[in-house]
Each structure stands twice: as structure tokens, then as C-alpha cells.
Design a protein around this nucleic acid. Structure first.
Lengths: 199, 199
DNA sequence: CCATTTCGCTATGGTCCGTTTCGTAAGTGT
DNA sequence: ACACTTACGAAACGGACCATAGCGAAATGG
């Protein structure tokens, strides 16, 4: 089914994507350069330009090909515990090399809507959907309020992760952080009147 | 008290900062160039390099000089209402030109820790402190739980704003969004047993 | 063997960086 | 008035990188 001609070199392709990922985690996307990728991968610049339209697309594919973006989908009896598992997994991956690359991609997207769109479809949406599923299950369980607005909760949980990644209020691997965050999101801020004694 | 020599031209300074802010909101920081600023401001590149070490610092100062980052500090009887006011103000400013510039700054900060540090000190921390104050007041009022972890709530609220700004899950000016978000953060996700009837 | 396609190499013109040089403008002290 | 000091504007520089093009060599299918 493949037509005539020299086939594309998978070796070159892999070398390019590997080099791209390495350079992204070393320097971030600001100093990420096609020529740098060519040099480190041992390939020619022209080969890169033949297959990728620009640095945004290349960085994106390097991320998708290389990152451990596939957190396992837990499904235990407790929706809260599953939530914790998923969010912990994301936090761990954000705290490492993948996090820096993700940050580069997201921020590159500010001036490259196409790249940001792909990131949405390939990374953000699937993950959000996973959270949604878990929360819906929790609502059916009775673990969560029946009138809970799922999107809002998803946004709050995801938002904290991305904010720590990008703005760096505080480190992503601060011990106990995620537990505290989840607990408070679930419990809310308003005082809970005790049933045994009115307030 | 001013030594000898030609004094610095405030006119040139203002022209540079204005031009920088304009170009930031037009193109974002990716295509933000010192030479572009020089051209639009009608000054020379050397003048810019005399006073600013690089594009990060210039962009930062342009933001600080130009943006309406000073949201008024409300202080009514209700801490919840004040919270709403402050967050609404930030959301509005993020939804406009300032938001795009802020996004650029954060982007620049990923590879320019010094700039990100200044952003923290000059913008992030003061705003966070304002939120903290309001929440503490709410705790004293009894509007909030006494054992509320203030930092976590601040992070959740701020986080949603930055995430909408940078990741663009959904628009910052979506009607009713902020109210829903605040309400749910305050009320939590767990079911609230009615006092009159046990569960 | 030949057509086709990719690969690596070597330019090319262009933009922007960050710096330097140089002549000129605008203040200070004596 | 005069020297001194500092900032401004214009021009040019080497360097990095972009995006593209031309070329010969390599690798496949027919």
C-alpha cells in the first residue's frame, strides 16, 4: 500500500522527537529552536521542516509522543479516593520534566491557537472527562451533593494544578497539599451547623 | 540633588512604555520585539537597552505602569460580598487587554525567573493578601468555618482565574460563572445533612 | 534499471538580538 | 562663556535563528 520512493526514516523521526523533548525540558520553549533540535538529533533542518510546520507543532508532538500523560483510571468503591488518585498522578507528572514541557506548550499556545486547540483535544479534554466521570459516580453514590455542579468542581481542581505549574505560587510537590486542597474543596468554607445543637 | 549631565527624558520613557504595552496586547510576547518598540515609540534601540536589560523586564514595567491592577478594596459588612467584588474585578481586567499582557508576562517568566519574581512581589502577593484579609475577616465574623485553611481557598479562587486566562477552558466573561464558582467553593461538594431529619 | 521519495548538506535572504561607535542635545558647576 | 557629564538618536556589527531552495546520495517499488 505504500507507494514508491524512499520510506520515511522512523529512526530520524524518533531522534527528532526525543531531541525535541529533551531540549524542551532543558530550556523551555522560549529557547527551543529547530536548529537546535536538528543538531542534537543528528538530522538536517530540512528534514524537520518537511514534516512539521513549525516549532509549536513539533513541541506538541514531542510532548504527546513522549510524556506519561496516561494516568491510570482508577475505579474503586470510593469516588473521593479515585479523585485523589487521579489528581495525585497529574501532580506528580507536572512536578517533573513533563510539567516543564506542558508549561511551555500551554504558554506557546497563547500565540498559537492551533497548538492550544490540539492540546485541548488531546490532553485537557480527556483528563477532564475522566474527572467528570468520577464525580458523576460520586453523585450517584451519594458521596457528593446531588445538586453539585460538576464542571465547577473539575475546574477548581484542575485550576489549582495548572496554577501551581504556571504561576508557581507554591511547589507542586508540597507534601500534604493535594489532600488539604481536595478536602477543602469537598467540604466547603461555610460553617456546618451541628445537628445536635442549633446555631 | 541631581548630578550633572542631560537628564533622562520622561517623554521617551513614557513613549517606550506605552508602545510596549500596545505591542504586547496586539501581538503577545512571542512577537514582542525591542526593535518594534523602538520603531513605534520613535526612540532608538540604544535608549531602550540603556534602561532595560531585556524584553522581560520591559514588558513587566510596561504592565505595572499601565495596567489597572489596583482593584479597589471593598470593606462592607459581608466578607462574601467583598470576595465577590474583588474577584469580579480581577476577572474583568483579565478578560480585557490587561489579561493578554498578563499572560505574556507569565509566559516570559517561565524562562526568566527574575521577571516572574517581580510579578509575584508586585502583583500576585498584594492581591493574594487582599483576599486573605477578607477571608480572615469572614472567619472572625462567623461567615466562614473557623478551621478554614485560608491559603487553600485563596489558591482555589485565584487558580480558577488564571486557568481561564491561560488555558482557556472557558471564557473569563461567561455570565454567572464567577457566582457559581464562589458559591460552590464556599458550600463544598459533600452532602449537607438536614438537621431536622438524619441521613 | 528507473521513477519516486526522503535524507543530509549547503547555501540564501530575512528578522531580531545585544552591543559598539559616533555625533549631537541638554543639563551641571566655575 | 566654558568645560564636564550624561542621555539621546542614528548607524553598523557579528551572531542566532527562521523558513526556503537546490543539489547529490540513499532507499524503496515496479
Amino acid at each position: 500500500m505504500r507507494g514508491p520512493g524512499r520510506p520515511r526514516s522512523d529512526q530520524a523521526r524518533d531522534a527528532i522527537l526525543d531531541a525535541a523533548f529533551q531540549l524542551l525540558e532543558e530550556n523551555g520553549l522560549e529557547r527551543f529552536t529547530i536548529e537546535g533540535v536538528a543538531a542534537r538529533s543528528g538530522t538536517a533542518k530540512t528534514t524537520i521542516y518537511r514534516w512539521w510546520p513549525g516549532k509549536g507543532a513539533l513541541a506538541m508532538e514531542a510532548l504527546l509522543a513522549h510524556a506519561e500523560l496516561t494516568v491510570p483510571i482508577p475505579h474503586t468503591a470510593s469516588a473521593v479516593a479515585d479523585l485523589r488518585t487521579v489528581l495525585d498522578g497529574i501532580a506528580r507528572s507536572f512536578a517533573g520534566a513533563t510539567g516543564r514541557v506542558v508549561a511551555s506548550i500551554v504558554l506557546a499556545g497563547q500565540n498559537d491557537p492551533a497548538t492550544l486547540k490540539v492540546y485541548h483535544e488531546k490532553v485537557v479534554e480527556p483528563r477532564r472527562q475522566r474527572l467528570r466521570d468520577i464525580i458523576e459516580r460520586g453523585k450517584r453514590n451519594g458521596e457528593f451533593r446531588a445538586d453539585l455542579h460538576v464542571e465547577t468542581l473539575v475546574e477548581a481542581m484542575y485550576g489549582a494544578l495548572y496554577t501551581r505549574l504556571l504561576i508557581r505560587f507554591s511547589p507542586l510537590d508540597e507534601p500534604g497539599w493535594m489532600d488539604r486542597h481536595i478536602n477543602q474543596l469537598l467540604e466547603g468554607a461555610l460553617p456546618r451547623p451541628l445537628c445536635s445543637q442549633g446555631a
